[in-house]
Amino acid sequence: MAEEEQSGAPEVDPQFEPVHKLTEQVVVSTGEEGDIVLFKMRAKLFRFDKPASEWKERGTGEVKILSPQAGGKIRLVMRRDKTLKVCANHIVSSDMNLAPNIGSDRSWVWNVSADVSDGEPTQETLAIRFANSDNAGLFKAAFEDARDKNSSTTTAAPAAAEESEPTPAAAAEEEEEKKEEEAVVEAKEEPVAAAAAADEPKAEEEETAVAPAAAVEELKTEEKVADEGVETKATEDSLVPEAAAEEKKAE
C-alpha cells in the first residue's frame, strides 16, 4: 500500500531561484600571467619531514619552470590538481643539484633554501616523481638549464653595478688618491717657486750692473763721432786756401 501511494504521488522537482545574481565575472590572478613557460609536465611532489624522518606527499599536478618576461630569475612552480594550491614555488638557484632518488630512475631529489609555497620562505628537501624515466630526463635538462641561466645573470649583475656606480669605499679611495696627487704636485711646485723668487734679485742686479756699462759705451761712441766730425771740418777748412791759390795760378 505504501509503495502504491508513493508511486501514485506526483513527482516534485523543486527549483530555487538565487537571491543575488552574479553579473560580474571575477578574474583570479595566479601571478603567472606575465611568465614564459619553459617546461610543463605532470608529476607528484614529496617533501622530507625531518622530525618524523619520512617523506610526505605534497600534491600531484603540473610542475612548471617559468621565466619572467620583464626579466628576472627563473623559478619552479607546482600546483595541485583541482584546488590549484601552490605546493612548490622557488627560484632555481646555482646551488641546486638534482640527485637521483634511491631505487628509481624517474625521481629526483634536491634541497631548497627558500621555498615560498606556504607564504614564508622555508628550507625544504623536495623529491619529484614522473611517469617514466624519459619525462624525468626532460625535467632534469630544463632544471639545469634554468639553473645555469640564473647563475650567469647573478654573475653579470654585480659587474654591471660596479661599472655604473662605484661603491662608497671605492669613492673614498679615489678621493684619497686625488688628495695625494695634489699634495705631490704642490710639493714639486714649492722648490720651483722658491728658486724663481731667489733668481729675481739676481736678475735685477745684473740689469743694474749692465746698465752703467752700456751707458759708458754709448758715451764713448758719441765722443768718437764728435771727434771725427771735428777732424773732418778741420780738413775741409785747410783745403779751402789751397783751392783758392790753385784757382789764381790758373788765371
Rank of each mutant, 00 (worst) to 15 (best):
E246M: 02
A169Q: 12
Q15M: 13
D145K: 08
D95I: 10
E246S: 01
V27L: 01
E190K: 14
D105Y: 14
H90L: 15
T153Y: 14
E223W: 00
K73I: 15
A214G: 02
E247H: 08
K188F: 00
P212V: 12
A194N: 12
L84V: 06
H20Y: 01
P168H: 09
A172D: 06
A203M: 13
E32A: 08
P100A: 08
P100K: 06
A70Q: 13
T232W: 03
A195R: 09
A141R: 10
V240Y: 00
V28M: 09
E217G: 05
V184S: 07
N89R: 06
E162P: 09
E218R: 02
E3Q: 15
E175G: 03
A209T: 03
A209R: 02
E120S: 12
R147V: 10
L126S: 03
E204R: 04
A114H: 00
V210F: 08
W108A: 12
L66G: 05
L76A: 06
L138H: 12
G61L: 01
S93E: 15
T125C: 02
E175Y: 11
Q123Y: 07
W110F: 13
A70L: 13
K50V: 13
G103V: 03
V109Y: 04
N111M: 07
E207P: 04
V12P: 03
T154L: 15
E180G: 01
T153F: 12
T153C: 14
I102R: 12
S133D: 01
L45R: 13
